[in-house]
Simulated assay, not measured.
Amino acid sequence: MRIVIAGGHGQIALRLERLLSARGEEVAGIIRTAEQADDLREAGAEPVVLDLESASVEQVAAVLRGADAAVFAAGAGPGSGVARKETVDKGAAVLFADAAVLAGVRRFVVVSSMGADAAHQGDEVFDVYLRAKGEADAYVQNLDALDWTILRPGALTDDAGTGLVRLEAHTGRGSVPRDDVAAVLAELVDTPATTGLVLELVRGSTPVTVAVKSVAGN
């Protein structure tokens, strides 16, 4: 399987790249600068330098062509302002989805956020972030050419992963280690039966593989 990850140098993406490459998948990560490339190689991924804030849909499609799955894990980051919530958290997500359609890549997994809502009100940075994420999610959901799954983790932590989660349509608020988010993503990429699902993720008591199989069977 060839998997292309947008936001390849992100904290979740690097973890995901390690997991996927360790199980023998061919992984490519899209990054903004060449300085980030060595970190991806160390994680077992092929670095692809391309700025999703300025790239064309054709340029992104060229990277995606031939892939079996695409994962959108890019984000403007907590220190960014309102403008980049629009250009990255929304704009880059829409671009990546359109490029996947153009490249003929059906399997499409999105790392969103708990509370993402296109109708979210407010003008603070986090309000804009949740609205941008919600608008991006809604855009992906309307693309019939994609077999999409949207994952909405709770508050992210750097605690060591436990491999135990709660993965449901609605979990309620909670936190989750980035390790466990990456583990769930690795399973979702390979579980097309989760197509069409929007899933929330927090710490829990169910092993990751069991949790994913459970939602896939509903």
Rank of each mutant, 00 (worst) to 15 (best):
L201T: 08
H9M: 03
V210A: 13
T209D: 14
F96W: 04
D190Q: 14
V128L: 01
G75A: 09
V189C: 05
L130I: 11
K133S: 07
A13S: 08
A136R: 03
A132M: 09
D123N: 13
G24S: 10
G75V: 06
V109P: 08
F126P: 01
A34E: 15
A169P: 12
D179F: 10
V27M: 01
E124C: 00
H170P: 00
V111F: 00
S80N: 05
A13E: 02
A73V: 08
L64G: 04
T209I: 05
E58D: 15
E25P: 05
A155V: 14
T191I: 08
L143C: 14
S56G: 14
V105P: 03
P153D: 07
R106N: 09
A132E: 02
E26A: 14
I31D: 08
D190M: 13
A118K: 13
D127R: 02
I12G: 00
G75W: 01
A6P: 06
R15A: 13
I3L: 06
V215Y: 09
D147P: 10
L185M: 14
I12S: 09
L14M: 05
G115F: 05
T206R: 10
A103F: 10
D68Q: 12
V63G: 01
R41E: 14
L201R: 00
V208H: 06
F72L: 07
A28H: 11
P78E: 00
G217R: 15
R152E: 11
G24F: 06
V88C: 01
D117G: 06
A97T: 11
F72I: 06
I31E: 01
V189T: 11
A103L: 12
G66E: 05
A97M: 02
R23G: 10
Q121Y: 11
A76N: 05
T157L: 01
V101G: 05
D137E: 15
A93V: 14
M114G: 13
E17P: 11
N218L: 08
G7S: 09
A132R: 04
V165T: 10
K85S: 13
G134A: 10
G81N: 09
T87F: 07
D127V: 07
G81F: 10
T209Q: 12
P207H: 07
R2V: 06
I12E: 05
R173Y: 12
S54K: 12
A22F: 09
Q141M: 15
P207L: 00
A67V: 09
T171V: 15
P78Q: 00
D190W: 09
S56R: 07
A97Y: 02
D144V: 06
T191L: 02
T194L: 00
G134F: 03
G79V: 04
K90G: 00
A34I: 09
A73E: 01
L20E: 04
I150Y: 03
G174M: 05
A183I: 07
P192S: 08
L19I: 15
A186L: 07
E35M: 00
E135G: 06
H9P: 02
P192I: 10
E46W: 05
K213H: 11
L14A: 03
A70W: 08
V184L: 08
R152F: 07
L64P: 08
R65E: 13
G91A: 07
L188A: 09
W148H: 09
V212S: 09
A74C: 05
R2F: 06
N142R: 15
V140G: 02
G122S: 04
L64H: 04
L188W: 07
A136H: 11
V125T: 14
V189A: 10
